[in-house]
Amino acid sequence: MTCIPVKTDRKLGLAIDLDTCVGCHACVTSCKEWNTGAHSAPLTDLLPYDADPDGVFFNRVHTYEQDTPDGGRTVNFPRSCLHCEQPACVTVCPTGASYKRTSDGIVLVDQDKCIGCKLCSWACPYGAREFDVDVGVMKKCTLCVDRIYNENLPEEDRVPACVAACPTGARHFGDFGDPDSAISKLSAERGGVELMPELGYKPVNRYLPPRERKNHPVNTAAKPLEAVKAEGGFLGWVDRILSGKD
């Protein structure tokens, strides 16, 4: 059933540190590499060497510029499934292919049941679901469900591929359901943000906002030129009339 579990035992998810993310896309390539052979394999690429390549990714890194009171800054922003507590992507699914696991809250697509109606991708506000045109089914982040419980991997590797790959340690994985877990504490300490909470999806993942810059660099910009004096006399009057300032 695509009804959402009332309560999940755990709430596994990611905390993504926007302060340290350098936008290198290592998580993107690592995710693609693991998942194209994993639970939702393959992550098809169409015309990869052509003029307009297309393909399925679970994780996409945007880059934004922001004007802050401290000056402009660049923020790199990885975007992937937030494993919401109220995922409408699951409830809209007519086939039961989409589901949220009671044990850990991970949202998955059963590749054998999906009819490729695409409705779940319309229902996800965050753009976390991508349709595989070649296979005809929907694909999305699995939180590397086949790594995190995988006893064939050394213990330190039992984290999502994106987390393992991040060179700056900007991605953290853990249980948000446990207030004492490292990830819950980290998120609390850094003021982890929920994306678009007003939509009511209750995303589990948190984004740790960039830290405030304390040490301002020396301002080396030239001083502004002196203001030009307003023209007086007849010409000034004409100018004021023409520019509609009375």
Binding site: G23, D52, D54, F57, R60, H62, P69, R79, V133, L195
Partner: peptide, 26 residues
């Protein structure tokens, strides 16, 4: 959408990909 809003105006300066993907096409 990015949760950055409180700190000031946000502009997209680079997409994650150069060509259209499923999300943009659909």
């Amino acid at each position: 959408a990015t949760g950055l809003g409180n700190a000031g105006k946000v502009r997209s300066s680079q997409w994650p990909h150069t060509e259209q993907n499923y999300l943009l096409k659909e």
